[in-house]
Design a protein around this nucleic acid. Structure first.
Length: 473
DNA sequence: ATGTAC
């Protein structure tokens, strides 16, 4: 059974481990293997794999897990990608889907969310009282107390404990690299959603019977309304990539190293330039988790406006799919890159945050617009892939090809526009976000089937979209 | 993904 969902592909520069069912594997573009062959030329690499949502990116495919030993490791800003710390967050509400049955009410909710959450291009966030320097250095711990509505007491501190990591330590001298305008822009963007595939979505839950016990331990119930957020480190992460990328390209030229792809940047962790990148990448991870936290904060305010003070929203989990960091696996220290890949730890794994030690933590996997998203949990067998699973559906069409090939009517019918099940979208014109239509993506159900079939993780709940908030240019 | 220049 298992071998149908896993292929070891031998390339001139090394092996790439591909987790995908037969039809997804067959459909892969040969370019993903060209890209793997370039990535495998980075020295000392010990493991590289693709999840079934893999597709071509800049320098590296989205859907890559790439691993080095820490002691002779390399870091690649191209593998991490430019949206450093991009990831997912889910909040549970105390609403049942029947309370949002009326399309009119979903429209009102979306309108109210837009009051608190800026979605226009270049819009400023509503958090100018927050010191950027504090959150850059201390992550969630750098926020004023009023933005941690769950409080700091151990039992209730879900905003700080139900996250992959609430704070990243790094050498703060690295921050001197940036001019004032980088700081100003990042400050004004705190608590904004961004564009592209980023979204905030109101969904409802269907629990998977096989994992009902886990679902209930996490506080899920059938028909529960939840909030799913997908966003990243905005321009701060972009600046880190750009500044550090150009320094690393310069170092590579000086050292005479590289591959066939000039976009593929990397350096030995022992180099000061690489260490500087790691420090600043961590600053962007701090920014990203705070940004998602503030987006949730804004939406909680909107929820209280629409449903009254009885409205409650607790943090299920926040985790990332674009980053690199140190991890221990079976007593050895590794430097693990995940680019469009999600960590999914099994029950009893010591790296689970305390509230999820016994069950494994929730792994949050978004679908494309109008389709299901998933809440997963890792399986012990996932260790063969360093506990990485997919990060979403994965693109099959470029933005330009989607605009050319897909009509607004096709998009609208995928969103069930005009029916009582309509997924209400904030953007008046679907045309402005057609490059995000489900027709641009692989079928997420098939991706999840591959991940489950390969034994990497299990489904805890399927999440059906009810209303989506998107940014657009 | 993002900001910016064309």
């Amino acid at each position: 059974m298992k071998e149908n969902y896993y292929q070891k592909v031998q390339l001139p520069a090394g092996q790439v481990h591909v987790y995908a069912g037969p039809s997804l594997f067959q459909a892969l573009d040969y370019k993903v293997f060209e890209m793997a062959n370039n990535n495998l030329q980075i020295p000392n690499q010990v493991y590289m794999s693709y999840t079934p949502d893999v597709h071509v990116g800049v320098g590296t495919c989205i859907g890559t897990t790439a691993v080095w030993n820490t002691h002779d490791g390399y870091v690649s800003p191209s593998i991490v990608g430019s949206d450093i710390g991009c990831g997912m967050r889910v909040h549970l509400t105390n609403l049942h889907k029947d309370e949002l049955k009326e399309v009119k009410l979903r429209r009102k909710l979306v309108k109210t969310i837009e009051k608190y959450l800026p979605v226009e291009d270049h819009a400023r966030g509503h958090f100018s009282d927050i010191r950027l320097e504090h959150v850059i250095k201390k992550g969630l711990h750098g926020l004023p107390k009023k933005y941690i509505p769950d409080g700091y007491t151990p039992r209730k501190a879900t905003s700080l404990t139900h996250v992959e990591r609430s704070k990243f330590h790094f050498d703060e001298n690295a921050l001197n690299l940036f001019p004032d305008r980088v700081w100003h822009r990042a400050h004004s963007q705190l608590g904004t959603l961004g564009g592209g595939n980023h979204f905030a979505e109101i969904q409802y839950i269907e629990i998977a019977e096989d994992n009902r016990e886990v679902a209930e331990a996490w506080g899920l119930f059938d028909g529960q309304v939840i909030l799913m957020i997908h966003s990243g480190s905005r321009s701060w992460g972009g600046s880190v990539s750009q500044y550090c990328g150009s320094l690393m390209a310069k170092m590579m030229r000086a050292q005479g190293i590289g591959t066939a792809d000039p976009h593929l940047l990397f350096g030995a962790l022992s180099e000061p330039v690489a260490q500087n990148y790691v420090d600043l990448m961590y600053s962007a991870l701090n920014y990203a988790v705070v940004n998602r936290h503030l987006i949730a904060y804004a939406i909680r305010e909107a929820g209280k406006d629409v449903f009254g003070s009885k409205f409650e929203m607790s943090t299920l989990y926040d985790l990332m799919h674009n980053y690199a960091w140190e991890e221990e696996h079976e007593g050895n220290s590794y430097f693990v890159h995940r680019k469009g890949a999600t960590r999914s730890l099994p029950p009893n794994h010591p790296d689970n945050p305390e509230p999820y030690r016994l069950t494994g933590h929730p792994a949050l996997i978004p679908g494309s617009m109008g389709t299901s998203s998933y809440i997963m949990v890792g399986s012990p067998e996932g260790k063969t892939n360093f506990h990485s699973i997919c990060h979403g559906a994965g693109r099959i069409r470029s933005r330009s090809a989607t605009k050319r090939l897909i009509t607004v009517d096709e998009f609208a019918s995928s969103m069930r526009v005009g029916t009582e099940d309509e997924v209400v979208v904030n953007q008046k014109s679907l045309e402005s976000i057609i490059d995000e239509s489900p027709q641009a993506y692989k079928d997420v159900d098939q991706i999840i089937e591959s991940v489950v079939g390969a034994g990497l993780a299990q489904v805890v709940a399927r999440c059906k979209p009810m209303a989506t908030v998107k940014g657009a240019k």
